[in-house]
Design a binder for these strands. Structure first.
Lengths: 212, 212
DNA sequence: GTCTATACTTCGATAGAC
DNA sequence: GTCTATCGAAGTATAGAC
């Protein structure tokens, strides 16, 4: 019994996600998070102890959720190439559902993880670990060319995160009429990345090697 | 005459670069920048008016410098593919000389450019503009497959920025022994990106298309 | 669990002498 | 151009009543 009605912690986390994504850890304001969540600021401290506690809880959740999706792909059926395709699509979909995720990822990489405790860092580490494992198996099975799995991880996911986090600045830049950065949709870009990744991982075709 | 001995503005900018890269705009402390630069805080305001003025001056400089290098490549000799190769190498070298650059880029993308004025945004916009122009010409000359130039821009440079900015968090993560992210050097990664980009841009080879 | 009021600290910025 | 001293605004966090 005692259905806990844990509604305010969840509302706080949702508000915190927006605030931290928009402003970063240092720029985020506890008052603003509380106001956005329609809770009293004291409630926030009651549930999460501190601004940092809230931040870590949020990130641990996000990373755990995202890693679970990747693990389902890694453990599921399909060819190595199909799994890589799905990793890209699935992370793009995840970031679409959780629009705050890409900006937070960018900031956390820039920050060097200074606000994270061991547990949260471990949750984060699962992402490269699972993707790396998929690539590693593909290489071992000679479905992919030999390459460090982490290289594949960065080259397939960094552009997706960057592109999705950068929607706002691209709009700003397009207004200046120096470059038009609105040319295509996020969906098109995801397909582009799947295609580019497939080619980067494919064996053979030394034809495309050094031309200089 | 009156050799201005503009040494303190430059020292301030150098100190600001480190501080802003490490902590972001909101997390950066004016006192700390002044102390790092060995100048009085009042001097900083005397030269740059405000924290934001300092930030914009720094970024405008960086973007202008980086864009100049890219323009030299675009206007120089060589095949389309060679130019793309050089864009990647040159940006990697630039970020190696200015180690604070990648983190600031990541943060600014996440931030949506809110601290930047029109002039600084225009300087930033030159980067995708020049790279986009190189790709566009290559596509027009049928040296590259057809694709939106901005897609090529993101897929070739986002991983480089991400990788270089992420040195610190990768070290943190490697300590946890969940994944080893130290496997290879930055130079190896740059070569990987050049190779992957060459393949992504190359025409033909429909063999690597959809496998699902 | 919830709210008001407030303690305590830090930070950006400036005044004003030299 | 340079420095000391300081103001005033914000910000995190908590005490304590209900």
């Amino acid at each position: 019994m005692a259905r806990p009605a844990r509604v305010s912690p969840d509302r706080i986390l949702a508000a915190a996600a927006l605030e931290f994504a928009e402003r970063g850890f240092a720029g985020a304001r506890v008052d603003r998070i509380a106001r956005r969540a329609h809770v009293n600021k004291a409630m926030l401290y009651y549930h999460f102890k501190s601004k940092n506690g809230l931040y870590r809880t949020l990130l641990r959740r996000m990373f755990t959720l995202a890693a679970a999706r990747l693990r389902a792909i890694a453990d599921g059926a399909g060819s190595h190439a199909e799994k890589v395709d799905r990793v890209i699509a699935s992370m793009a979909a995840f970031m679409d559902e959780h629009a705050f995720f890409p900006a937070i990822m960018l900031r956390e990489v820039a920050e060097g993880g200074v606000h994270l405790d061991r547990e949260t860092l471990t949750a984060l580490a699962a992402l490269p670990a699972v993707v790396g494992a998929i690539v590693h198996r593909g290489v071992k099975a000679r479905a992919f060319r030999a390459m460090p799995p982490m290289f594949a991880y960065f080259s397939m996911l960094a552009p997706v995160i960057f592109f999705l986090a950068g929607t706002r600045i691209r709009k700003e830049i397009s207004h200046l009429h120096v470059v038009d950065m609105r040319e295509s949709s996020a969906d098109d870009f995801i397909r582009h990345m799947q295609h580019a990744t497939r080619r980067a991982l494919a064996r053979g075709s030394a034809r495309h090697a050094r031309t200089s």
